[in-house]
Structures are given as structure tokens and as C-alpha cells.
């Protein structure tokens, strides 16, 4: 997962969120208020408010109370959630605090590392 991910506030404008997401190259961003995860905003949400980005706040476009995983969740559980709900990433929370975000790419990378490590020892 990516630790200490970039986040936005519910009161930020969608325009500000869009700039953040584009410069960082991410398709989703967690929404944090007073240190608590309150929602998630995706590029799909932005597209649905096209033309009104300067005048709409994040809290009007985000998904509130999003699905999350913990740092101890299994890759399999995280994968199943993402596949079932057709989402590309999940916020990771511990003790109510946002500690990271995990994406489909992160998990594929982890799986590849495991496979390649296994092949290394088999051939080495």
C-alpha cells in the first residue's frame, strides 16, 4: 500500500481535488476531516460534476463512509472487495485513522514479487 496518502478535505472544491489527482496521477483520493476518514472521491465523481468543479465541494460529490481494509487484511480479501465492487483502490485504516491506500496495481506488484522470488530460489 501507499503510506500517508495524499488526501483532501470535504470543504475543498472539486477543482482543487482535480488538480491534486492529476498532478499525482491517481484516480481516487481519500477525504479526511479532523484526522478521520469520511469519504472517497474518484475521477468518476469529478466527471459527473464537469462544468461545476469550481463551485462544488468535495463533500457533495464523494462517496461517504467508504469500504476500507486494515493493514492486517489479507490480499485475497482486499482483492475480492475490489473485484466485487469494481473499484480500483481501498483506503487502509487502523484505529480509526487513515494509514494508507491500496490499489489493484499494488496488489499485482506484490503477487509478482512473490512469484518471482519463488522462481529465484527454485532456479538459484
Amino acid at each position: 500500500m501507499t503510506r500517508n496518502p495524499v488526501s483532501v478535505s470535504p470543504k475543498d472544491t472539486l477543482a482543487k481535488a482535480k488538480t491534486l489527482m492529476e498532478s499525482g496521477g491517481f484516480r481516487r483520493v481519500p477525504v479526511v476531516d479532523n484526522g478521520q476518514l469520511v469519504g472517497i472521491l474518484t475521477d468518476r465523481d469529478l466527471r459527473q460534476h464537469l462544468g461545476y468543479l469550481e463551485t462544488t465541494r468535495v463533500n457533495a460529490a464523494m462517496t461517504a463512509s467508504p469500504m476500507t481494509v486494515t493493514p492486517h487484511s489479507s490480499v485475497e480479501d482486499a482483492a475480492r472487495l475490489m473485484l466485487e465492487h469494481k473499484i480500483g483502490g481501498l483506503p487502509v485504516v487502523e484505529g480509526g485513522k487513515l494509514v494508507g491506500i491500496v490499489s489493484v496495481s499494488d496488489m499485482l506488484r506484490a503477487l509478482l514479487d512473490v512469484i518471482q522470488a519463488g522462481q529465484g530460489t527454485a532456479n538459484g
Binding site: E76, A79, R80, M82, L83, K86, G88, V104, M107, L108
Partner: peptide, 9 residues
């Protein structure tokens, strides 16, 4: 990517 993830699981 999702297809691969689904396959592995």
C-alpha cells in the same frame, strides 16, 4: 489488471 488479480485469487 483486474482480470489478472481475479485469476490469481
Amino acid at each position: 489488471r483486474s482480470d489478472i488479480l481475479g485469476a490469481f485469487t
